[in-house]
Amino acid sequence: MELPTGFLEKAEKREKKHWFFPISFKRKSTSGYAYTNTRVRVMKTKLLGKNDFRKMMNMSFSEIARYMQETEYSKEISELATRYTNANLIEYSLNKNLENTFNRILAFSMKASEEQVKLYLKKFDILNAKTFLRGRFSGQGEEAIISQFICAGSLGRKFFENAVKKSSNLDEAIMQLKGTEYFDIAKKFNGNLSKIEDALDKHYYRDVLEKAEPELVAFLMDEIKVKNTLNLLRAKKTGIKMEKIENESETKLALPKTDDGIENRVFLKKFLLERGNKMAREFKRNVRPVLGYLIAKENEISNIRIIVRGKSSNLPAGLIEEQLVI
């Protein structure tokens, strides 16, 4: 049976008061993977299956909205129903659910597994930091910036909300990052936003590759390979000569087509997500099952979003189906 959200934190507090509370089982594992992976495996059973997506593909937008109320997302949908409508409601609910689920995993994972999960989820901190800097760069309103955050990383929602409230331009926004590992990186580029963004992304990969276990490193290497291939295709489309990079065999992946078309993008996305889905099915005492779950969950949310957004904006059914990784 799965423990409710925040149960462990509350239990820990209670444990201090009442020594007899049976929470000590959490501390017996050396790496924490046995416990974390078992809990994640239970959570995995609640993920939507192939049939659910096929069913959703044959539904109209309103039917999908009703169907979503019967799934794991109903809590978030009810929570956000007063703020958003239609496809926006479902999409923001999906983001909120992703945030809640990942925070829950962070809360119950421990020792090595906690560290690895934290490392992987750092990408949300980077994404939020970029959104925050971008928003302040173009002078967006507080609400517009805050509503785009998906706070599933180590830096909480409070941190980013305070940072948004206390800054009004890019320089002030960079100052708000003081105390985090991103401050020095952001400060280095004299307000050149695209360079700051790229430096933050590179920092994420370098940092994670340095600290992560081999299983997570292997997955991230694949992710880097995919990103490099995609960026090469983007550069090729624009007409930028990148012979030096192109010749490096490391960055090369066998693609179905040579241009930056949707076929290649979908192929690379499927390449990465299928690896994640495969990992989620494994029974090992390492980071792979939990990492697999994180990827599978992201993929589930991505699939639902593609169907919902595609249906609400009347995209051709073939195009929607092409984008799904089931």
Binding site: T131, Q148, R309, S313, I320
Partner: peptide, 23 residues
């Protein structure tokens, strides 16, 4: 319109809007 709808579907509104802030 098709391109932005597709981008919102695949990358998510949050990512697309966030990128638009940087323009």
């Amino acid at each position: 319109k098709t391109a932005i709808d597709l981008a919102r579907a695949v990358d998510g509104t949050a990512t697309v809007r966030s990128a638009s802030f940087a323009l």
